[in-house]
């Protein structure tokens, strides 16, 4: 039973990402949407824990939310995959259930 964890909060504002990483099983995936997008940035304070998480989790980011926030995909941590809303829907079917860390 694998979980799609959805994070919509900036790692600099709330503990959602930390809590998710503490409670996510190794085979589960993480999707960053809305202000959760800010966790993708290279050379940022949260980058190290995101890079470590990539060892155990597929991490996805919602491209329209990335673009809305003016983040250059070139500045994204290597290994994070971009999806659009169609890809978001597909992820919710690829995994058994979703957990939104509101």
């Amino acid at each position: 039973m694998s979980v799609l964890h959805i994070i919509n909060k900036s790692p600099y504002d709330r503990s959602s990402l930390d809590t998710c990483l503490r409670l996510a099983q190794p085979d589960s995936a993480i999707l960053l949407i809305e202000d959760g997008i800010y966790a993708v940035q290279k050379n940022a304070a949260a980058a190290q824990k995101v890079e470590q998480a990539l060892a155990n989790h597929q991490i996805y980011a919602l491209q329209p939310d990335l673009e809305a926030r003016g983040i250059n995909p070139d500045n994204m941590i290597d290994g994070i995959a971009l999806v659009d809303y169609d890809g978001f829907v597909k992820l919710t079917t690829d995994y058994d259930k979703s957990q939104s860390w509101l």
Partner: peptide, 27 residues
Amino acid sequence: MNEGPYTHQASDSAYHFTAAALRAGHE
């Protein structure tokens, strides 16, 4: 859907997700 429109993006996200799910043929 737990938040109202405009103040949070949540309603927009839910709308785009729902529209995409319908496009993919989901019920």
